[in-house]
Design a protein around this nucleic acid. Structure first.
Ligand code: ZN
Ligand code: ZN
Ligand code: ZN
Ligand code: ZN
Length: 614
DNA sequence: CAGAACGTCAGT
DNA sequence: ACTGACGTTCTG
């Protein structure tokens, strides 16, 4: 992936090279490079999806490209390959389910959706002229489906987070565990992101996590290094790809700089100027991982569809910083670089200090159960402390180099995020952290557990008052577990804080409501109005005596029902009626939910032990 | 009866 | 896991 395909273009722009020279194309033949035996030696590590976890990372770091042939075990989610538009067979065969959208359409629907929602044109590279051009998603779809193409167009910088497509794709688990965007960047900032475009001004976080690449046969992307020293995951959904790979040794990076600055990219196949260049073929279904700084070129031998993403992480920090410096010296414009690269470094320091020393220097908005008040607060005391956690050498050295790197920046280029209240104190804490960990043992650092991550509670904030309505969790055969349909539906109490609020008009359910201009299909309560004490319907009656919860009187809104509903068998009873049947056992009242207990019968049966959490 | 919205399901 | 869609239940 490249943030926006720049390649040569960036430099031709800057230097104002006449058009004619651009038309010159290549002075080498790709066929030679595709077959030449001198690229045959392998620099790529082949491992299984299960092996490539966080522990692998902590053990080995990520210094060589990794090829995983089968995605099983990676924790990667991609759409079914039948997604692709040319799987005509699927669309013909699936006539069982009537009224279904033909599979054939799905891919283009999704891609169109990207275009529609972002109101943005695609950045498309014309392979022959190496020039970027814009076109609408619709135009590209026509091109893609047209069997008689008169030129080579390549889509390699289409980031699709915050589009419909995004939910079809999840990065491999390791990546999600180490990606700084997921584990370092303040969550609330990322959540503010709405635009699906990659316009820097609208970007609230480094939006580089999910790319789709669409390339027709013959496409070629010349040698480059991924922006900001990012690593890459790269899954070939359909088609095939050929990579030429060059390790980021100091010597090679130096040569790379020269090659880029020479402006002679079209004349020289960069792979021929270095000592080692390795070629690898990726088949459909393969997942490829490119480490920081690896210089690579890509050829597309057949129409291809690829999902991938870029990420920074803690196991190649020094290299990442080194690549950032390469970008400096080759004058790569900001818009082609990792967004908020330097800001991210500050956040990294804070995250490590917060997670290991328990002191955060971030002024984060506090989320409290107290409702109502969502205000900013001071930097927080994170009271997470356990036994000593060992850091890998990679992390330790990396963190040190961040400090040095930030220190080396000119005052105006330090990019301290506003949220970082006291950068000086932060640096000081980091130095203390490094000191504390100077004797950390590498083998003890291989835990398979992330050191830095956000508390996973963000979503659980909304009280799970109605814990899991249906569901038994019990395997026991003959348990006369009431089928879920027997469960009495609850209704809002109309008195709690939530019930007395007004519809917010902004949440998904409000926006769905007809009164707010929505289609009214979801038919759900406003999120702000989710009842804290859902009641049994006033029409409920005891299953034993068939009297309601109000001594047979008319329901009084002031008086609570005296019926109890069993959270296990769902029977509704007066406690006194239950007592008659089973005098020796008491029910267990559930404090979280009004009129809820585990009835004496279920308690006696010991069924409550099956009450699984969640 | 209309209006609200609960719990569940299927698709992603 | 997350979300939207839906049938149905509940209230007044
Ligand atoms: Zn709302
Ligand atoms: Zn309520
Ligand atoms: Zn009764
Ligand atoms: Zn029961």
């Amino acid at each position: 992936m490249v943030r926006e395909r720049r390649e040569r273009k960036q430099y031709t722009d800057d230097w104002n090279v006449p058009e004619e020279e651009l038309e010159g194309k290549r002075n080498f033949h790709l066929e030679d490079k595709l077959s030449d035996e001198k690229y045959s030696h392998q620099l790529v590590k082949h491992i299984s999806g299960h092996e490539f976890g966080l522990a692998y990372m902590q053990q080995n770091g990520f210094k060589e490209p990794i090829l995983v042939k089968e995605k099983a075990g990676l924790g990667l989610k991609v759409p079914d390959a039948s997604f692709t538009i040319d799987d005509v067979r699927a669309s013909e065969v699936n006539n069982d389910k009537s009224g279904m959208i033909p599979q054939k359409e799905l891919f283009s629907h999704l891609c169109l959706d990207i275009g529609r929602r972002s109101r943005r044109n695609l950045d498309v590279m014309d392979v022959l002229t190496q020039k970027n051009m814009e076109m609408s998603m619709k135009e590209f779809q026509l091109y893609w489906e047209n069997p008689n193409k008169d030129k080579l167009l390549n889509v390699i910088s289409l980031e699709f987070s915050h589009t419909r497509l995004e939910h079809y794709v999840e990065a491999p688990l390791v990546v999600r565990q180490i990606d700084w965007v997921d584990n370092v960047w303040p969550q609330h900032l990322k959540e503010l992101q709405t635009e699906s475009t990659n316009v820097l001004e609208d970007m609230m976080y480094p939006k580089v996590q999910k790319y789709v690449l669409m390339s027709v046969k013959g496409c070629y992307t010349d040698f480059h290094i991924d922006f900001g020293g990012t690593s890459v995951w790269y899954h070939v959904l359909k088609g095939r790809k050929v990579f030429w790979l060059i390790p980021p040794t100091s010597r090679n990076l130096e040569l790379y700089e020269q090659w880029v600055l020479s402006g002679k990219q079209g004349d020289i196949f960069f792979g021929d100027t270095v000592e080692k260049c390795s070629r690898v073929v990726l088949e459909a279904g393969n997942t490829f991982f490119i480490p920081t700084g690896w210089i690579h070129a890509v050829y597309t031998p057949e129409d291809s569809l690829v999902f991938g993403g870029n990420f920074l992480h803690s196991f190649s920090i020094q290299k990442q910083l080194q690549i950032a410096q390469v970008e400096d010296t080759t004058h790569v414009p900001q818009k082609f670089r990792y967004p908020f690269f330097t800001e991210m470094l500050w956040y990294v320091l804070d995250r490590y200090v917060a997670c290991l020393l328990g002191r955060s220097h971030l002024a984060l908005p506090k989320e409290k159960e107290k409702d109502e008040n969502d205000v900013k607060t001071e930097p927080q005391e994170t009271l997470v402390k356990k036994e000593h956690q060992h850091l890998t050498q990679m992390e330790l050295h990396g963190l040190k180099s961040i400090v040095i790197y930030l220190h080396s920046l000119a005052r105006t280029k330090k990019c301290v995020p506003e949220l970082v209240t006291d950068p000086v104190a932060l640096i000081k804490d980091m130095k203390e952290l490094v000191e504390q960990h100077k004797d950390d043992q590498p083998d003890l650092a291989v835990t398979g557990k992330p050191i830095i991550s956000w508390p996973r509670e963000s979503k659980v904030k909304r009280k799970p008052i109605l814990r899991k309505y249906g569901m038994n969790g019990s395997k026991s055969r003959e348990v006369k577990k009431a089928s879920r349909s027997d469960r009495r539906r609850r209704v809002r109490c109309k008195r709690c804080i939530a019930c007395t609020r007004n519809d917010c008009g902004k949440c998904i359910f409000c926006r769905d409501m007809v009164k707010f201009g929505g289609p009214g299909r979801m038919k759900q309560s406003c999120l702000e109005r989710q009842c804290r004490q859902p009641q049994l319907p006033v029409t409920s009656v005891c299953s034993k005596c068939e009297v309601n919860g109000y001594q047979g009187l008319a329901p009084d809104p002031e008086m609570p029902s005296d019926l109890m509903e069993c959270s296990i068998c769902y029977k509704i009873l007066h406690p006194k009626c239950a007592k008659v049947e089973m005098p020796d056992v008491d029910g267990i009242t559930n404090e979280d939910l009004p009129n809820s207990w585990e009835c004496p019968h279920c308690v006696k049966e010991g069924l409550h032990i099956n009450a699984k959490p969640l």
